[in-house]
Design a protein around this nucleic acid. Structure first.
Lengths: 197, 197
DNA sequence: ACTATTATTAGACCCGATCTAATAAATCGG
DNA sequence: CCGATTTATTAGATCGGGTCTAATAATAGT
């Protein structure tokens, strides 16, 4: 890659996040202003918004990449299935994929945001943005079920996706809450999904 | 009630809400400011915040009373049960109570907020506050299950509550989306809860 | 009339978010 | 080495939601 023209970047999401998490731990999410974060990282408020659309987006940075990985896995599966039509997809396969994905998720991979979720005051914009992520998961599942072709009933699809989302989210939060000594996340999720099979 | 001392009220939640919904329908939730709402109703911005803690709270006014009624029903049941110890409560009874409650809920009772939910731009604070309501439902169900004594396993309780919440919310939204010609809400909810029994 | 009480209000403040225009730091072509 | 171009950073204005304080208005009781 030839060197790009224009002024080179000095700021980065990582630098801003580092400063932010430090400040969050001291004073909490709410009382840490974007101004403070930017200044601590050595930049201006305006630069912050060049990297993040909102204060909450910074908070969810790692969580979003995790969600992105899951999305890729699901979409990859669907495309792979395009060739060999109509194999066993549908709800059962979706749950199976979630379990596979959960194997790659260990205690060391918990996003800071989720790790410290309960400690933070439930700020409005955090609830909003967190809810947005949950809805995104729900949409992903619904899309998968729809595109996978099985289950023509849209209502049943919606219910299936909603239940799966709810169980996944409570499993994640419960698992994190369990602290050290929690077993593998896969085991936890298996137990949570038990009643569905 | 003897007449209370002090300056009598002229403003009311209803007056403010009336003005607000009119403006929402014209320009949408986002681009209607609290200032506009208050002035249209004939009051000042400051008065608005004497009645509502946030712009979103006005939006959910009727929905909140609905949730309140459900809470009362659940708590009433628990207290009634105090006397005759250990009858059949638990998950099955909770689902039954939801169905009973749903019988009292007809097309005419849909809160404006829910009726127009899909039409409104998904404003951040609306998502946040909506999510807050969903979490409240979840908490209510969890509390009921806990206090009802059955099911000693906290994890299973959490899962049960989450699934119930998810199914209830998707049932409500789906039912509203179905438009005129949707059957009774009770029928819809029965169908949604079917897989659980 | 005076006091206590409550409702309404103006106005300041903070913060998140959006936008525009200015400036800084680099590459590239001469 | 110089200017044009490109991109990053920034200052600063503006808006709206939310909080707060202090002032004023309208009632009841004495």
């Amino acid at each position: 890659m030839p060197p790009a023209p224009g002024r080179p970047r000095k700021a980065s999401p990582e630098l801003l996040q580092e400063a932010a998490f430090e400040l969050f731990q001291l004073g909490g999410y709410r009382s840490t202003s974007v101004e403070e974060i930017a200044k601590t990282a050595g930049f201006s408020r305006a630069t912050f918004f060049n990297f993040f659309a909102s204060k909450a987006d910074l908070y969810w940075l790692e969580t979003d990449t995790l969600i992105g990985r899951l999305r890729d896995a699901l979409e990859g599966e669907l495309e792979r299935r395009e060739g060999s039509a109509g194999e066993g997809a549908g709800p059962a396969r979706l749950r199976e994929m979630l379990l596979e994905f959960s194997s790659t998720f260990g205690s060391a991979d918990i996003p800071w945001a989720l790790q410290n979720f309960r400690l933070l005051e439930a700020a409005d914009d955090l609830i909003a943005s967190g809810a947005g992520r949950v809805l995104e998961l729900n949409r992903m599942f619904q899309t998968y079920l729809q595109r996978s072709g099985q289950q023509p009933d849209a209502v049943a699809r919606g219910a299936e996706a909603a239940v799966l989302t709810a169980l996944l989210v409570t499993a994640v939060l419960g698992w994190i809450d369990a602290g050290v000594g929690r077993g593998s996340f896969r085991a936890r999720l298996e137990r949570a999904l038990e009643p569905l099979s």
